[in-house]
Amino acid sequence: MAQGSSVQSHGVKMLSLVEKLNDLKVGVDNDTYIDVILQSLPLSYDPFIINYNMNGLEKSIHQLINMLLQYETLTHKSMSAVVVGEASTSKAKGKRVERWKRKKGKGKAAATTI
């Protein structure tokens, strides 16, 4: 899965691959499918994967995809709040530096003319 793409579309793709393997009578258990899905996620899902493995959750593929959708929704909400907060503080710092430089420059000019 590419960073920034929808986990829902990725989940649908993974489900179709699982169904194709089942149609081919490949003897793979549910835990292997879960591991493949978790390994296909980008690095931004590492906290989710760690939590899933640490808590020893035993879920079906459909339950896992629903959990991933919930995680995606929660992380997008918190990410947008953080980005807005960072943008507003960095602009304020830049303005403070410009004001300080102007005042400092004016002060030197006044001091040299005396």
Rank of each mutant, 00 (worst) to 15 (best):
G4V: 10
K20Q: 13
S78T: 12
E58S: 11
A81H: 05
S44W: 01
K77V: 07
L74G: 09
K20S: 15
A109R: 04
E98A: 08
V97E: 06
N51G: 02
V26K: 10
L74T: 04
S80Q: 14
R102G: 08
V36Y: 07
I49E: 00
E72C: 02
L17R: 13
W100F: 15
Y52S: 01
A109T: 05
V84N: 09
I50D: 00
L17K: 12
V97P: 01
S6T: 08
Y33M: 09
T89P: 06
Q3A: 15
Q70H: 10
I114W: 05
G94K: 09
I61A: 00
I37E: 00
T73C: 04
I114L: 13
Q70F: 06
I114T: 11
D46W: 06
N22A: 12
L17E: 01
L43V: 11
N55R: 11
E86I: 05
T112R: 15
H62Q: 04
S40C: 05
G56H: 10
K104M: 09
M1C: 03
A87T: 07
L17P: 00
D35S: 11
A109H: 06
S9D: 10
R96E: 13
L74A: 03
M54V: 03
M14S: 06
T75M: 05
I50V: 15
M1W: 07
Q39P: 03
L15I: 09
S88D: 05
S5G: 15
Y45S: 01
I37P: 00
E98H: 10
V82F: 04
S40V: 03
Q3D: 14
L69Q: 07
D35W: 08
E86R: 12
D35Y: 04
H10Q: 07
T32L: 09
Q8G: 04
N22E: 13
T112F: 14
T113E: 12
S5E: 02
I65S: 02
I61R: 00
T89D: 08
L17S: 07
